[in-house]
Every structure is written in structure tokens, then in C-alpha cells.
Design a protein around this nucleic acid. Sequence first.
DNA 1: ATGTATTCTGAACAATGTTCAATATATTTG
DNA 2: CAAATATATTGAACATTGTTCAGAATACAT
Lengths: 196, 196
Amino acid sequence: MEKKQIQEQRMRGYFIEATKNILRSEGVQGISVRRIADEAGYSFATLYNYFRDVRQLIFICVGDFQEECRARIAQQAATIPPGKEHLKTVLKGYLEYFTEYPGIFQLFFIEKLTDISTSRDTADRIYGFLDTLCDADWQYLIDQGDLTPELVALRRQMANNLTAGLLLFYLHRLSPGDWPTFVNQAALQIDTLLIG
Amino acid sequence: MEKKQIQEQRMRGYFIEATKNILRSEGVQGISVRRIADEAGYSFATLYNYFRDVRQLIFICVGDFQEECRARIAQQAATIPPGKEHLKTVLKGYLEYFTEYPGIFQLFFIEKLTDISTSRDTADRIYGFLDTLCDADWQYLIDQGDLTPELVALRRQMANNLTAGLLLFYLHRLSPGDWPTFVNQAALQIDTLLIG
DNA sequence: ATGTATTCTGAACAATGTTCAATATATTTG
DNA sequence: CAAATATATTGAACATTGTTCAGAATACAT
């Protein structure tokens, strides 16, 4: 009976797509069960036949957005060999993605995680996401003998923290005030981290 | 008729104190108008005689917590002369304060700012807070000729971003998992930033 | 003490997420 | 093809949220 599975998956897809559209355009504050169902063309009660609750639905969107982000960055950095330049491209792509979709950044880092999932796994997956994107490059720097493992571990943490902070300040405080300045400052800070 | 003013201020104080207690112990998710009023010993409707809405109440708490944090750090760093060591103490005190009260960190950085205030001022005050605490030290480093103004501007931004990121990861992802490790890593990262 | 001003409060409203019994639709069976 | 059964969809209903407002309780003034 795989027909059932296909139909069910399609239904889930409608709700997921609706949710992602709202998140992309309006962020988390645009989300409500009735709104999602409206957008999907069903009653709000129908949603509960396909998802435990709205948190599960949002949780799925987090995964989808991560995949989207990962794919985009992979394409941007495809031609660059591993190492510092590749790493810079990844970080820049990461910053680009979330500044294009501030609502998704908010969903990832700002929203109370308990609203998405209480599991520790979820937090790890969200907060460890950037690190997984950079993993190969850091490893490469160790293998090349450019940097000691201890130094890489430190820089790695700093890169994660710095990036999160950059987005937090830019998207929430609008500091710096415009995109070119932001990119400029971000590049400077990342350079400082990688070279210094 | 200043008696009225005093009484009114006292009433406001009851609600503010109740709100602060909840924020300290349970964070933003513990907040509700009825809960605050209960804690203050009044009906929820009474709250609206003294505050425009709950956002104004929370906004006041933000200011109070900042003052509390500032005072504590000032005391910790009182005996240290301006410069890098003083700066480190301030940053450490800042990290300490928010790890002691994770709910306040959440209130400051995680909660949707629109839930507190829509004004740009508020965002500036929250996100610029750490920077004001460090202002004198950065200025000192320039005046001493230790670092160029441009270099200080860069490090300054990095310090803000790094600190926010550190707290974000520690409090949300529990990474690193324990307090001593966190302090250790934080110190290392700050040293790297200031020396390197 | 009586009348007026002020302060306090529960009822009520709209919006939220969620549940559930009933309705509508699909599927199977005779 | 019709009847019976299983499944899918739905709105009504509930609890909880922030907020408003008319009236009740209290304080103050005459």
C-alpha cells in the first residue's frame, strides 16, 4: 500500500511548503496554525492528521532550510580548493543566506528552541550546522601542517561565535546599517581570525 | 500632590519587582500578565493602570538588569587600572552575569525585540550595552598608542560579536557543556583577540 | 455624612494551539 | 452498481494568552 504513503507525503508537503513560505517572507511571527492551513488549502484541524503539532512542522522546515543553505554554499564554493579561501567562501555564503532570509535566522538562533523541539539533538543540529560546513577545511588546515590541532580547535570555536554574533548584531540591531558595510566588516573580522 | 506620585511609583515597583523575579527564575517563558499580577498581589487588570502594556513593563526590567549588571562589573573591576586587563575583567563579568541569569540573556538577545519595544533606541541600548562598558578601555588603548584607532574599531566589533556568540552557544546549545570549560575557552578566545 | 474622585477588578473579547465528535469522502464488499 | 465500512476532513469547543471597559470598592473632600 505505497499509494497511501505517497498521498500522505504529498499532504505533508503542502503544509510544509506553506510553512516555509510564511517563514521566508514573514518569519516566525507570521506563523499560526490557522494561517498555515489556509495557505495549504485545508482546515487547521487537518494539519493535526499529518503532524503531531506545529513544532514538528517547524522542525522539518529547519532541516529543509539547512539543506537549501548547504546546497547553495556547496555550489558557490565548488571550484575553490579546500583551505582558507574555501573556508572564507563558506562563511560568506552562510552570512549571505541568513541575511537574505532574516526570518530563518530568527527561527534558528533566536526563537526559543523549546518552541521547536525540546530534544538536545535539535539544538546540536542547529548550532553545529555551520561547523559541519567548515569541517573539511579545518581538517585540511591541520593535515597541511599549517596550524596545530589545538590552534584549529580554538579558531574553529571563534569562527562559530563570531559568525553568530555578526548575524545577531546585523539582523537585530541593524549594525552595521547597510549590507556592503556588513560584508566588508565581516570579511575583515574573518581575515583577522584566520591570519592573525 | 507628590503623595500621588510616591504611591504610584510604589505600585509600579510592585509589578516591576514581580516581573524581575519571574524573569530571573524562569525567564521570559514564565511571564504572563496574570502571573505577574498574582505575584504582585493585584488583579491583572490593575497592571494596566500603571503600564501601557506588558512590553513596557519588560522594557523597564531590561534597564534595571543592565544597571545591576553594570554595577556588579564596576565593583569587580574597580581596582584594576584601565587597559587590557581591565577589559578582560569586564568581559568576564559580563559573561558571568548572563550565565547566572540565562533568562535575562534570553530577554536581551533572544526574545523578539518587537515583544519588548519596536523603537530603534531599545535595540541600540541592548546591543550596544557591552560596548559602553568597554568604551573607556578601548579609548585608553588608542590613547596609549598601543593600537591604531582602526585596529581598535575592528577588535571592538569582534569583541562584541564574540561575546554574544559565546553566550548564545553556551546557553542554548550547552556548548561547552560545563562552566569551567566555558570560562576557560572564553578566556582563551578573548586573549587571542586582544593579543593576536 | 454625604458626594465625588480615584483605584481596583472580574467579565468579556479576540487570537492562540489543540482535541474530538461529527460530517464528508474513498474504498471495499456483497 | 449499491450498501457497508474505513478513512479524511472539518468546525465547534476548550484552555490560555494580552487587553479593554463598565462597574464595584475604596479614598478623599466637602
